[in-house]
């Protein structure tokens, strides 16, 4: 998968969100409308209880995690010192997410997607290039998880997805700190659908 186009090309993102059952146009508002839910009522939107639906969403998330693993591997050569240490830690954590998702997919009777043989990353010529690219990737993942979260049928999976979102958000704060920027820019972390 071409990461650069995934991040910048709305078609790639749309594919992810379509797979996760969430329309990207209009974001969650669209999702609510599509489900016939009213923003202001407590009517449960009835998460899809089927394992098949969960498997599709989880595999989409797995694709992103595998891409993040590849990105941190590719970027490590440009990192030094404490930033390199952080990069290694984040690589391990993305792999843990991927492993956790693969287990959940198997538990739900599905087949986990595999990593691509090659990813077409943008030119990462400096540590700052890597940090900025990593921030973009993490924000994309956060937005994707938050959009997909309500579609997960099982409470345990929703809680796990939220725990992954929180970890990706931690990565963003560390990366922003390494860039010398405000580490906690907003009270609500929604990521960025590129």
């Amino acid at each position: 998968m071409d990461v650069d186009s995934f991040l910048r090309d709305p078609h790639s993102r749309r594919r992810f969100f379509r797979m996760s059952g969430v329309s990207v146009a209009g974001g969650s508002a669209m999702f609510l409308a599509a489900c016939g839910g009213d923003d202001t009522t407590s009517a449960p939107l009835g998460p899809d209880e089927s394992d098949e639906a969960d498997v599709e969403i989880l595999n989409s998330a797995l694709d992103l995690e595998l891409m993040a693993v590849a990105a941190y591997k590719a970027g490590a050569a440009r990192l030094t010192g404490s930033v390199l240490e952080a990069g290694k830690l984040f690589l391990e954590q993305e792999q843990e997410h991927a492993d956790g998702l693969a287990s959940a997919i198997k538990d739900a009777g599905g087949k986990p997607n595999r990593a691509k043989s090659a990813y077409d990353f943008p030119q990462l010529g400096s540590q700052n290039d890597v940090l900025r690219f990593a921030v973009d990737l993490e924000n994309t993942a956060i937005a994707a998880y938050i959009d997909a979260l309500p579609k997960l049928g099982k409470g345990d999976l929703r809680a796990t997805a939220a725990a992954i979102v929180a970890n990706e958000a931690e990565h963003v704060s560390v990366l922003l700190g390494a860039l010398g920027e405000q580490q906690v820019p907003d009270a609500f972390v929604v990521g960025k659908a590129a």
Partner: peptide
Amino acid sequence: YEAHRKLNDAKLLQAGASIMANEAQHLVV
């Protein structure tokens, strides 16, 4: 984290995750 097992409303789930992620960012600092 625990609330995500119990909440039903899609918007609340999303808001909960985005708040939880912000608390996690506080933890980093």
